[in-house]
Design a protein around this nucleic acid. Structure first.
Lengths: 126, 126
DNA sequence: CAGTATCCACACCGATACTG
DNA sequence: CAGTATCGGTGTGGATACTG
């Protein structure tokens, strides 16, 4: 929702920059593993192994990779306890939780247009 | 919302089905080309060639593929004029425009956390 | 002009083995 | 326990050529 007053010139460069970043973030985040991790974390704090159990079917590699990506973008916090054996805990940052909200928005959209989509698919595939 | 009156458990199957579909739609829609096409279409009606010029850098193949996908999911309309040479016009459906709104939601999120994300990336990459 | 088919380089992801 | 490195099968996307 762009609540833009009738001002002179909108900052198009900023908009394009944000859009470009949005796409970048999107391509980072919009894969099923990242989404499942974000959903699994929710408001909780989980260890690597717990997360692995929680996100059904994810490989060790994908979990690591996606956690690094989330950490890099400031969506998840990584806390290392210097113990033996090591204990590493992950949780969503405020930005991460806010993103989770927008994902929910899209889920709401899906819910609303579920019938429409399935009907359209049926028609198309016929 | 399906009104299913079972014992204590609500319609978990339905929820899982919607979630599963949500992920499917997401993996369809959440790629940069689909998003750029949706943005390019906006409220307008565009021909294939116009769309190709509008979406910077997209290949013929990707445009076709994504338009088919959007059509299949009932997000875009495809109108063929049986002329020579052929004229094919695309526009968003109501569902497509609604999805566009949710994409804007994510853009808003990006805009809000732009600084946070860039700072986090800078920190991480160092 | 719009769409389809084919080829090929490259990125992705899982499995596996190894380190602190 | 958590993380990195490597290898190989699979899928994705771009360039090109061809059809109606």
């Amino acid at each position: 929702m762009v609540t833009k007053q009738f001002t002179g010139s909108p900052d198009e460069a900023d908009i394009r920059r944000a859009d470009s970043l949005a796409r970048e973030i999107f391509s980072d985040v919009a894969n099923k593993w990242a989404l499942l991790i974000i959903e699994a974390l929710g408001e909780r704090t989980l260890r690597f192994g717990e997360l692995r159990k929680e996100v059904d079917g994810i490989s060790h590699k994908m979990l690591t990779q996606n956690l690094r990506m989330l950490e890099r973008n400031g969506l998840a916090d990584r806390r290392v306890h210097p113990t033996v054996p090591p204990r590493v805990e992950y949780r969503l940052t405020e930005a991460g939780r806010a993103l989770r909200e927008t994902v929910h928005t899209m889920c709401d959209w899906t819910h609303r247009y579920l019938g429409h989509i399935e009907a359209s698919r049926g028609r198309f595939d016929a």
